[in-house]
C-alpha cells in the first residue's frame, strides 16, 4: 500500500485533475488518469525530501474558508487604498513576526496564504525560521496585526502540520 501510494492525496488530486482537464469519464480517460495518479507520485518519491503529515481535515476546511473570505475583504481594502492613494496614502510597513511554526510544509502553506491575500507580501524568512519579514499594505496597529496573524493563520497550520 505504502509503496504503491506514497502520497494518496496527491494521487487522488492528479486523477481528478486529469478527468476535469479532459471533461470526460470515459474508460480510457479513467485508465490514463489512474496511471498518472499512481505513477507520478512513485516517480517523484525520491525527489521529495520529507513527507508531510496532514491531519485535522475540519481545521483545513475552516482555514480555506477563512482565507477565501480574507482574500475578498483584503481585495476590497487594497482596491479602496489604491483609489484614494493620493488623498490618503496607504500606511505601508514591514512587520517582523516571530514564528512558532517550524514545519517546512506548514511554512510553505503560510507563504502561499500571505501572498495570495492582497494586503500582505511575504518578504523574507530568517534562516532558523524564527522570524518572518512581512510587508503590509495598510498597517493600522502593529501588535494587533501580529496577534491576528498568529491567531488566524499560524495556529491552524500548526494544528494541521505538527
Amino acid at each position: 500500500m505504502n509503496r504503491l501510494f506514497p502520497a494518496p492525496l496527491l494521487s487522488l488530486a492528479l486523477f481528478v485533475l486529469w478527468l476535469v482537464l479532459n471533461l470526460s469519464v470515459s474508460p480510457g480517460n479513467l485508465l490514463l488518469g489512474a496511471a498518472l495518479g499512481i505513477l507520478a507520485p512513485v516517480l517523484m518519491a525520491p525527489l521529495r525530501p520529507q513527507h508531510a503529515h496532514i491531519r485535522r481535515p475540519l481545521v483545513i476546511a475552516r482555514l480555506i474558508g477563512r482565507v477565501g473570505l480574507d482574500v475578498i475583504l483584503s481585495n476590497l481594502q487594497v482596491a479602496r487604498g489604491v483609489l484614494r492613494a493620493s488623498s490618503h496614502p496607504p500606511r505601508s510597513a514591514f512587520v517582523h513576526i516571530p514564528l512558532s511554526l517550524r514545519d517546512a510544509h506548514g511554512l510553505a502553506a503560510l507563504s502561499m496564504i500571505t501572498t495570495v491575500v492582497p494586503g500582505t507580501v511575504w518578504s523574507e524568512l530568517a534562516v532558523d525560521r524564527s522570524i518572518l519579514l512581512l510587508h503590509v499594505f495598510d498597517l493600522d496597529d502593529e501588535a494587533a496585526f501580529i496577534e491576528h496573524f498568529k491567531h488566524t493563520y499560524e495556529r491552524p497550520l500548526m494544528e494541521i502540520f505538527e
Binding site: V71, I72, N75, V78, A79, V82, A85, S86, P89, P90, S92, F94, T115, V116, V117, P118, G119, V121, S123, H135, F137
Partner: peptide, 18 residues
C-alpha cells in the same frame, strides 16, 4: 500610481485572486 516598489507589489494580487 503607487509611489513605493513594495506598495506596488500588492495591487497585482487583485487580478490574480478576485
Amino acid at each position: 500610481r503607487l509611489k513605493d516598489y513594495f506598495q506596488r507589489m500588492h495591487p497585482p494580487a487583485l487580478a490574480s485572486t478576485i
